[in-house]
């Protein structure tokens, strides 16, 4: 009976037809090890991305994103090894991003068990790469990550972790990416990232209303209420965060309980 009530209560605005809003921890990885500080109590090895990922899946994370910042010539090999170990151990979907430049990178990661790849700079520099990836692997495999920062009264796509502005206006780039075959948009506001003052709900709503593919909000999460706000105000499909989860400032079961009490559809 509770389930029926939940279904009736879930209006299109609060998680359509039972589809849950996703909570996604993001892990930065370098040469096979997590780099940002992690403050989990029960971890034997906080630098082991697989153990951390397993822990998150047990807590109720809906999906994981691994951002590989390895810069050596062995990069593809270390990413493939990471993806294989994650796919062997973890029973939820995950995305891998970082330095994916060509079809061969994507092919190797797919065969290693990645559910999705996230492309950022390479897509801005060569937008046709999106078409090629979507055609080769399907749109569901292709996440386009967009780092945005406001300059004047415009939102501008940035590269290199927000340091390098491009010529591209953010919404216009996202619409082009969608038309070329992006299956999902991971939108990080560099103005909000690290502030812990909440997501960039204004821009996220504009983007979410303009596209027909899922949008993942990123940048600015500092409190449970910020997740409630981003889902209620923008209706994005997922919210991503790193440090609030890694340092245990927000525990996923607590977060989901609050979302559920606000009638936001979540997987518990």
């Amino acid at each position: 009976m509770d389930q029926i009530n939940t279904q009736i209560k879930s209006t299109p605005f609060r998680g359509r037809g039972g589809l849950s809003k996703r909570i996604i921890p993001c892990l930065d990885v370098k040469e096979g090890r997590t780099v940002k500080g992690v403050n989990f109590v029960d971890l034997r090895d906080a630098g082991d991305p697989v153990e951390l990922a397993w822990n998150y899946s047990r807590q109720g994370a809906d999906e994981l994103v691994f951002l590989d910042i390895t810069a050596t010539v062995e990069r593809r090999k270390t990413m493939v090894e990471l993806v294989k170990s994650v796919a062997r151990q973890i029973n939820i979907p995950f995305t891998i991003g970082g330095g994916i430049n060509e079809i061969a990178d994507a092919d190797a990661l797919l065969n290693a068990g990645a559910d999705k790849i996230s492309i950022n700079s390479a897509a801005v520099r060569n937008p046709a790469l999106i078409d090629e990836l979507a055609k080769a692997f399907g749109v569901q495999f292709v996440v386009i990550a967009v780092d945005t920062r406001s300059i004047g009264n415009k939102n501008i796509v940035h590269l290199n972790g927000g340091r390098l502005p491009t010529e591209r206006e953010t919404l216009e780039w996202i619409l082009e990416a969608e038309s070329r075959g992006a299956g999902e948009i991971l939108l990080t506001s560099m103005d909000h990232d690290g502030t812990k003052n909440g997501f960039d709900n204004g821009l996220l709503k504009i983007v979410n209303d303009a596209v027909h593919i899922p949008v993942i909000a990123s940048g600015g999460a500092g409190a449970v209420q910020h997740f409630v706000d981003v889902f209620e105000k923008t209706n994005v499909d997922a919210a991503l965060a790193a440090s609030v989860f890694h340092y245990g400032e927000i525990l996923i079961p607590d977060l989901k309980a609050v979302l559920k009490s606000n009638n936001i559809e979540v997987r518990i």
Partner: peptide, 17 residues
């Protein structure tokens, strides 16, 4: 059927009965 409300592909966790 695709719309702003129901994005396609249907991606994520949904309830089954």
């Amino acid at each position: 059927k695709e719309s702003n409300t129901y994005k396609v592909p249907h991606t994520g966790w949904n309830q089954i009965f």
